[in-house]
């Protein structure tokens, strides 16, 4: 197919960033699910507490949130490209 030759370069950027979004969501989900049900399925007596919160919740939701925020900042800063949206801008 020769369609690829004249594909707008901006679409490649967009496709890549959409995939990054899916990847982040997947990481986010696995982290959230893994800690919540991995650590949270123990009997309550065996829970430990971090800053007073149950450990599973602390790792799953508090650390998970901080981690995903850091990842978002990281990918936006290093992988996201500035792209013009208007056709006139493109010609300039």
């Amino acid at each position: 197919m020769n369609e690829n030759e004249n594909t707008d370069w901006r679409f490649k950027v967009a496709n890549r960033e959409a995939l990054i979004g899916c990847g982040l969501a997947l990481i986010n989900f696995i982290w959230w699910f893994g800690f919540a049900y991995g650590m949270g399925s123990k009997p309550v007596e065996e829970y430990s507490y971090i800053f007073g919160l149950p450990d599973w919740f602390f790792y799953s939701c508090v650390v998970g949130f901080l981690l995903i925020t850091a990842l978002v900042i990281f990918v936006v800063t290093f992988f996201f490209k500035d792209v013009p949206f208007d056709e006139e801008e493109e010609l300039r």
């Binding site: 919540a36 149950p54 978002v72």
Partner: peptide, 30 residues
């Protein structure tokens, strides 16, 4: 806490929507 766990699934909306619709949606809409 189970419900707070459930609610935290919403954090994903903060980045997912804009990343997935993203630039292509902005370009096509224009």
């Amino acid at each position: 806490f189970g419900w707070a766990l459930l609610a935290m699934s919403q954090v994903v909306t903060g980045y997912f929507v804009l990343m997935v619709l993203g630039k292509k949606f902005a370009i096509m809409a224009r």
